[in-house]
Design a protein around this nucleic acid. Structure first.
Length: 423
RNA sequence: GUGGGUGUAGCUCAGCGGUUAGAGCGCCGGGUUGUGGCCCCGGAGGUCGGGGGUUCAAAUCCCCUCACUCACCCCA
């Protein structure tokens, strides 16, 4: 009898009716908040040419090396499900010449991302991000505004116990010097570690600072930090950002060991973490990427943005257990037909009431009065409309108030106005 | 890709070598010729994740495998 069940793919989740209202609330809050800062929504495709991600995120990153969902379409072209949104937004910015519009282009995008990783707490293969990007200004005030908007949104979402860390990764002038110094230090310090670790430390030394391995912590703690290598411009940029943040009353911490996993970041980077999330504790990460737009064939365009992890954010609101909020949308009325003729009448009545703006459901499949009333009770509707032979003969409907356990018989023509007036 | 934990009803779990595998919740029906919730009664629902082995006998012990989960790498 039962055929083999087809289950969802590893690392992806259904968002069930009882939880989707929470998603909608968060998305609405993001739209409202970002609009107050002058941001407009852009919706970009969830797949792009593989080349786009390879070129923007960086050939040496884990995302490009091992985490992309890449496939050839029927025309033989290599496409990839987006692992992040920034690259697509830059592509769209260039493709549609949004740089020719005046001022800073402020865009946001909400949707699913895909990375082929082993799932764990707070990490899925399909996950969702709220992404905001500001193109066209290198003013540190824009950096600060982006962070203030983020903080505004997170606090409106009700998140507490968050930690905001800020750093400056340097520019084309001072970063290479730091990178060299760190590489040299690691060559010595990482002697006793495995070949794989040493190889990685040599190829991308900054990323080593991100390691959680307890054995690495001592090495990281003694490693040179970038703050000693900042040139005056970078230092001034960070100071200006911090100044604005202080002015806005934002609590933050400068962490000279904060790095990001994508190659395109420069200057300002930041991360928001929570202590209530487990190992994957970043709710949001972001930073400046002044070279990326040009790299993708656009004019030299400074830009900065961030990505918020929706699943992680939602895990921090309303508790993990999640109060089940009952039916998705409370019904105004539930119709119980008794008998075969009544079914057609009930169907028509439901239509009238719905066109009148009410939320109405009805009992399908017949059954005894008792079982249909049970359905009515569980529907959560305040009012039940009973439509049986008696009522049809008289042209009436029995209106029962489920909360008060009272009922009255009304002419059918009066039902809509009666319910619309809210009892 | 690597390591640990867990897989028994829709859900949460008990049973851990011995007749036909259980509970609570949920679901369906009945207790009222046309009235929900509370209560009472009844019912449906399980290849005990899958495969192999040990044994007179396996949900229970062993091996393999798959899934879920947590952690590493890395990131939202």
């Amino acid at each position: 009898m039962a055929r083999a069940k087809i289950t969802s793919v590893r690392g992806v989740k259904d968002i069930l009716p009882e939880e989707s209202p929470r998603w909608q609330r968060v998305e609405a809050l993001a739209r409202e908040t970002f609009a107050r800062y002058g941001y407009s929504e852009i919706r970009v495709p969830i797949f792009e040419r593989t080349e786009l991600f390879a070129r923007s995120i960086g050939e040496e990153t884990d995302i490009v090396n091992k985490e992309m969902y890449t496939f050839d379409d029927k025309g033989g072209e290599s496409l990839t499900l987006r692992p992040e949104a920034t690259a697509s937004m830059c592509r769209a910015y260039v493709q549609h010449a949004l740089y020719s519009q005046p001022g800073v282009a402020k865009l946001f995008c909400i949707g699913p991302m895909f990375r082929y990783e082993r799932p764990q707490a707070g990490r899925l293969r399909q996950f969702h991000q709220i992404d905001a990007e500001a193109f066209g200004s290198e003013d540190p005030s824009v950096d600060a505004e982006v962070i203030v908007m983020l903080a505004d949104f997170l606090s409106a979402a009700g998140l507490k116990d968050l930690s905001l860390q800020v750093n400056n990764l340097g520019d084309a002038e001072c970063r290479p010097a730091y990178s060299r110094a760190l590489k040299e230090y690691l060559r010595e310090a990482a002697q006793g570690l495995g070949p794989e670790v040493k190889e990685r430390a040599g190829r991308n030394p900054l990323r080593f600072l991100d390691s959680k391995d307890p054995d690495h912590q001592a090495i990281i703690a003694r490693a040179p930090t970038i703050d000693r290598y900042w040139n005056p411009a970078c230092r001034a940029h960070l100071d200006a950002v911090c100044d604005r943040l202080k002015g806005a009353g934002i609590r933050y911490e400068v962490n000279p060991r904060l790095v990001r996993g994508l190659d395109y970041y420069c200057l300002t980077v930041f991360e928001v973490t929570s202590s209530h999330l487990g190992a994957q504790n970043a709710v949001c990460g972001g930073g400046r990427y002044d070279g990326l737009v040009e790299e993708l064939g656009g004019p030299p365009t400074p830009a900065i943005g961030f990505a918020i992890g929706m699943e992680r954010l939602l895990q921090l609101t309303g508790g993990d257990s999640g109060e089940s909020a009952g039916p998705p949308a409370a019904l105004d009325a539930f119709i119980v037909p008794l008998g075969g003729i009544a079914a057609a009448e009930a169907f028509a009545l439901a239509g009238e009431l719905r066109r009148g703006g009410l939320r109405v459901d009805l009992s399908f499949g017949g059954g005894s009065m008792k079982s249909q009333m049970r359905r009515a009770g569980r529907s959560g509707a305040r009012f039940v409309l009973v439509l049986g032979d008696d009522e049809i003969a008289k042209g009436t409907v029995t209106l029962r108030d489920m909360r008060e356990s009272r009922q009255e018989e009304l002419p059918r023509a009066e039902i809509l106005s009666k319910l619309s007036s809210g009892v």
